[in-house]
């Protein structure tokens, strides 16, 4: 369900207008092992085991400039079939909010 720039997913609101950028260069070490990705977050010392689409989202944010959920959807759609925009957009927004909560990306004003 969507309300302007926000959507309700899994019982919580996610903002699709929010912009994000990657953590500072060198703050995260990435390693691929088979079909999973390992992220070591240097500031917290935590290891995150991630699966698709987290590595793909991080790769699409590689130029380090802040991107909105809409920008990201465009970039990812060039490589992947993400289905209708109205279902893909809130899903990507939810992923970004989770990644920001873990410290893997930063929300920017």
């Amino acid at each position: 369900m969507r309300y302007g720039g926000a959507a309700i997913i899994g019982g919580r609101a996610v903002t699709v207008d929010q912009r994000y950028c990657r953590e500072r260069e060198g703050n995260i070490l990435f390693r691929t092992l088979g079909d999973i990705g390992l992220l070591y977050h240097r500031p917290s010392g935590q290891t995150h085991i991630v699966i698709s689409p987290v590595p793909e989202i991080l790769e699409a944010m590689e130029d380090d400039s802040p991107v909105s959920v809409g920008d990201l959807l465009q970039r990812l759609s060039r490589r992947f079939d993400l289905g209708p925009q109205e279902t893909a957009l809130p899903k990507i927004a939810a992923h970004l909010a989770d990644m920001a909560a873990l410290g893997l990306i930063r929300a920017v004003a």
């Binding site: 070490l29 390693r31 092992l33 088979g34 079909d35 999973i36 390992l38 070591y40 240097r42 010392g45 290891t47 085991i49 699966i51």
Partner: peptide, 29 residues
């Protein structure tokens, strides 16, 4: 056993993985 499951099991089987930080991440990977 897949590498993802192996990595997870070994982080649980290690008593000092967290304490060693980045060095453990590199060595276990």
């Amino acid at each position: 056993m897949g590498q993802g499951e192996t990595f997870m099991r070994l982080t649980q089987a290690s008593t000092n993985y967290v304490a060693l930080g980045e060095a453990a991440f590199a060595a276990l990977g």
